[in-house]
């Protein structure tokens, strides 16, 4: 248990560090490189200090809360996954498999794979209807 606060701190800080930080910048490498590396590190250090203070219930709780919405990694745009999302995801996957099965059946040219293609087409149609009925 001795290490738990440090562990928690490391995770929160790591989450804050990697979510909005350098990785995003690297991924959009075509953007102008306007900020110096020193400035970027200072920003990260401020985030780390803020997160640590928040974890320990320290004096800068208010300041940390103010920065939390922008930094909280788990809150980033995750809409709830509804039952219909699941139904339509299954339908989409079934139809993707169906298309590939029928491509393979065309290449294999035998009765078994032709049957598989027909069955998967039926499955795709049924699943599509379920998705549509669900409002998808």
């Amino acid at each position: 248990m001795m290490c738990t606060p440090a562990l928690r701190s490391a995770f929160v800080v790591l989450g804050l560090l990697v979510s909005p930080g350098c990785a995003h910048q690297a991924a959009t490498a075509d953007a102008p490189a306007s900020s110096s590396s020193g400035g970027e590190i200072a920003t990260l250090e401020r985030r780390i200090a803020s997160a640590k203070a928040n974890l320990s219930g320290g004096v800068s709780r208010g300041a940390a809360s103010a920065s939390a919405p922008a930094a909280a990694p788990s809150a980033a745009g995750a809409a709830p996954f509804t039952r219909c999302d699941g139904v339509c995801q299954a339908a989409s996957e079934i139809c993707t498999c169906h298309r590939r099965i029928c491509t393979l059946a065309d290449e294999l040219k035998d009765g078994r794979s032709a049957d598989s293609c027909r069955r998967s087409q039926r499955d795709c149609e049924d699943a599509g209807k379920s998705c549509a009925a669900c409002g998808g």
Partner: peptide, 16 residues
């Protein structure tokens, strides 16, 4: 590969 796709469909059908 075709059989793997069939297994995928079977699981998705049951999930559905």
């Amino acid at each position: 590969e075709l059989e793997a796709h069939e297994r995928h469909i079977d699981i998705d059908k049951r999930l559905l």
